[in-house]
Deep mutational scan, measured.
Amino acid sequence: MAAGGDHGSPDSYRSPLASRYASPEMCFVFSDRYKFRTWRQLWLWLAEAEQTLGLPITDEQIQEMKSNLENIDFKMAAEEEKRLRHDVMAHVHTFGHCCPKAAGIIHLGATSCYVGDNTDLIILRNALDLLLPKLARVISRLADFAKERASLPTLGFTHFQPAQLTTVGKRCCLWIQDLCMDLQNLKRVRDDLRFRGVKGTTGTQASFLQLFEGDDHKVEQLDKMVTEKAGFKRAFIITGQTYTRKVDIEVLSVLASLGASVHKICTDIRLLANLKEMEEPFEKQQIGSSAMPYKRNPMRSERCCSLARHLMTLVMDPLQTASVQWFERTLDDSANRRICLAEAFLTADTILNTLQNISEGLVVYPKVIERRIRQELPFMATENIIMAMVKAGGSRQDCHEKIRVLSQQAASVVKQEGGDNDLIERIQVDAYFSPIHSQLDHLLDPSSFTGRASQQVQRFLEEEVYPLLKPYESVMKVKAELCL
């Protein structure tokens, strides 16, 4: 049975990233139509530049190519590739079939990587351009969430054990800070992308030097003109047959890092959902379990974690691919890159769409948070109580021993009897502590235990987050809708 299948058929496997999760716009960027249309555009740009620099290419040939950029006979191309065992030459023939007058000058002087690699770089750039505003929107939604809850005390956790208090907004800023680093890295790697350009079979530009009869300047002009037509500021000066596969490492490393950030955020949300302090959106008709109707599973956060793990592992592909590119190139890269580049971007696209949807509907339960604080705060307040007693004339050592005994009794009630923490009640009825009984409410005010959390939130948002989001103001209103 021949390899390949009808990918629109229910009898043929289709990647869930495309069929179930990723956005239509990201799927289109990695589609065959987008790819092969870009090949034709690159052939047109090459012909236009070659004509401008004096090669015998007519206006009629150029116009014929322009008129057929979208006229792609995919069936013919597939048949040609089956016959020739070469995808680029299959599309040269297919393009030439609908451009008979231009057929002889299509791909003039070029090698397969002229269309293959340059198209990949265009796709990487455009895919990054799709991700950047999506990530900015996630940051914006979380920034709104953090600002609104900047002063809401909550129990902090280290080692997932109760620690000092923080605020809900401050905790959210930990998430935002990681995503801001990801946004900066995505922008950097996007701006650092260079075009492969017009380089020939081993990167020496020998074929173009021959076409222009040894004119170095025209060869350099050709490279520059096509690079500018493709919208790049610069091209690699040095290439082998391909652009260095280190570029793929750079791009997928940034995406993998984004995956790590999203995994951490969504894990926190899942843990908070278990504590009943916070939940992701839950639709009115949504079913959490087929057997347990009360369940409210954090399905979206779980999906993000599941896909983020996949995204983090994909960076190993370009690392290994770059390491086995012998001399000017081997074909070890080809099949692998067809999979890992598309999957990385479709996965990143999915987790950003999902995280935006989550961040637009996060639900906080202040009463649950308050109750958990009441359970733990008495123990945390013991040092403040000791200091207040010393100020009232008591002995630190005597007070410490009193607190120690009462704390152990209260802990026994919590752990052995399943009761509430009654340390404060014990202190309130103990005559030894009568000098500070009137101060206990103040000493137990949760806001006095959150330090500068709310001020940190305000400063972080104003100095770091809002300036970073400013270039994306025009796209901030787009909502994230999930079908599944």
Rank of each mutant, 00 (worst) to 15 (best):
T450R: 05
N357C: 14
P378R: 02
E213W: 12
R149V: 12
S253I: 12
R33Q: 10
A22R: 10
R270G: 02
V138Y: 12
P281M: 12
R234E: 12
S438Y: 11
T158P: 00
Q416E: 11
S112A: 04
N297Y: 04
A256M: 10
L461P: 05
L46F: 07
R303Y: 02
G156S: 14
L406K: 11
W326Q: 07
I436N: 05
L484D: 05
E60H: 13
T94Q: 12
R188A: 07
I269L: 07
R137H: 10
A110W: 01
K415G: 05
Q428G: 12
Q61L: 08
H93V: 14
R372M: 05
A127G: 12
R20D: 00
F74W: 11
L275T: 08
L53M: 12
D144M: 15
M292K: 03
E473D: 15
L307G: 15
F212S: 06
A150D: 08
L183V: 14
L42I: 11
A77P: 10
H263F: 00
A381I: 09
N421W: 00
R85Y: 12
E473C: 13
I176S: 06
Q177E: 13
P24K: 14
E277G: 02
A146H: 00
L346D: 00
V364D: 05
T52G: 14
T52R: 12
C399Y: 04
S257M: 09
H400E: 02
K101G: 13
K264M: 04
S112M: 00
F433D: 04
Q456D: 04
L355E: 01
K134A: 11
P100Y: 11
A348W: 02
L128D: 04
Q63C: 11
N68S: 10
T202Q: 10
T239R: 01
L174R: 03
V92W: 00
N71T: 10
L406Y: 13
I176Y: 03
C399G: 08
E328R: 02
Q320I: 13
G54W: 04
P435W: 05
Q439Y: 06
A78D: 14
S407H: 03
V138W: 12
M292P: 04
V115N: 04
L42M: 07
C98F: 13
H400A: 05
T242W: 00
I176Q: 05
V465N: 04
G96I: 09
S412G: 12
I373Q: 01
R337T: 01
E464I: 08
Q63W: 11
M89D: 00
L179Y: 02
A146Y: 00
H437L: 06
T202E: 03
R141E: 14
V115W: 00
Q285I: 14
I238Q: 06
R194V: 05
Q428L: 14
Q455I: 08
M225I: 09
D268E: 14
W175D: 03
L108P: 01
Y294D: 02
K295S: 03
Q161R: 04
W43C: 01
R171F: 03
L444W: 10
C99T: 13
A127R: 00
R452K: 07
V390E: 04
S290I: 01
F236I: 09
Q458W: 13
W43Q: 07
R396E: 02
A110K: 03
V247K: 11
N421A: 09
N118D: 02
E463K: 11
A410F: 04
Y34V: 06
R296G: 02
K66Q: 12
C266P: 05
E48D: 05
E417Q: 14
Q356R: 06
L311R: 01
N297K: 00
T239A: 15
S289F: 00
E481D: 14
D223Y: 00
L355P: 00
P153A: 09
P318L: 03
V324D: 10
D59V: 10
I238M: 08
D120Q: 00
L46A: 05
L377G: 03
A410T: 05
S334T: 14
A392T: 11
T242G: 06
E250K: 09
Q456T: 06
T38R: 05
L314G: 09
L108G: 06
I287W: 02
Q456G: 06
Q210R: 15
I269M: 07
T119L: 09
I427T: 06
G240Q: 06
K224L: 13
Q409W: 07
S412I: 14
L211W: 06
R270W: 02
V457T: 12
L108H: 08
M380R: 02
Q210P: 10
I403D: 02
N274R: 03
T354C: 14
H159K: 02
H93F: 09
C173G: 09
R137Q: 15
A3W: 10
R309Y: 04
D333T: 02
V251T: 14
Q456W: 01
E50R: 00
V92D: 03
C266K: 04
L423P: 04
L108N: 07
K82H: 12
L275R: 09
T38M: 07
S140M: 15
L314P: 04
T202F: 01
A344P: 07
G288I: 06
C180M: 14
V226C: 09
C399F: 05
F30Y: 09
I427H: 06
V226G: 01
D6W: 09
R196W: 02
C483K: 10
L179Q: 05
T242D: 07
E473R: 14
E64Q: 12
I427Q: 05
A256W: 01
I403Y: 06
S454A: 13
L258M: 14
F212A: 07
R426L: 07
G393W: 05
I122E: 00
V189I: 12
V88C: 05
W326T: 05
K284A: 10
H97A: 11
R20K: 06
C399L: 06
A480T: 15
A411I: 08
A110P: 09
S290D: 01
A230I: 06
G116K: 01
A103W: 09
L142R: 02
V247W: 11
A78N: 13
P162L: 07
L121N: 09
E425F: 13
C266V: 11
T354S: 15
F232C: 04
L275F: 07
M387I: 06
F160W: 05
F449V: 05
N68R: 09
S261Q: 03
W175Q: 06
M299G: 06
